[in-house]
Amino acid sequence: MDAREADYAHFVRTRTHALLRSAYLLTGDQHLAEDLVQEALARTHRAWPRLERPENAEAYARKVMYHAQVSFWRRPRVAEVLPGEFDPDRAAADDPADAAVQRITLRRALLALTAKQRAVIVLRYFEDRTEAEAAQALGVSVSTVKTQTGRALDRLRDLLPDLRVLTEISERGR
């Protein structure tokens, strides 16, 4: 293995888990997340000679991952939520302090969003990106990010009316 390939292998083995965490939120499924990250890493491998620093590589991989997830329509890209599986009333009746219940409920609610809405939620509130950074990652305008974020939060509020995770505060200049 030459030095360049060794660098790529090191990048993959140190950053895969971080990529998988975002991919899991995008897809709701371990295997789909692995497929998505695999595709992003493969594209990064193709571009590796042009990438000068590991930070560039991760940014490139994430951009590929978000583009692949958002801009292509394909049925099995996210885990399925069976009819009747999502039940806000039942979720609300459960103990909100129960982390496992909240995790399952949030996963189902995320899967009820469109791919683009889910992507902006993950970028803004998991990866902590600014609206401009999220727009760049998705290849859309800032206004589109704002619109999609608003719609996604409205949808999550409908789906998760009693969960504290969606308590609103005023925007303070991000």
């Binding site: 939120l25 993950v122 509130y125 998991f126 969606l166 925007e171």
Partner: peptide, 21 residues
Amino acid sequence: MTTPQPDGLRESLADLADVVE
């Protein structure tokens, strides 16, 4: 423009992401 409580949605997403192997 509003944004969710950082200590709510952000922590919940991080907690959910911990599920992935």
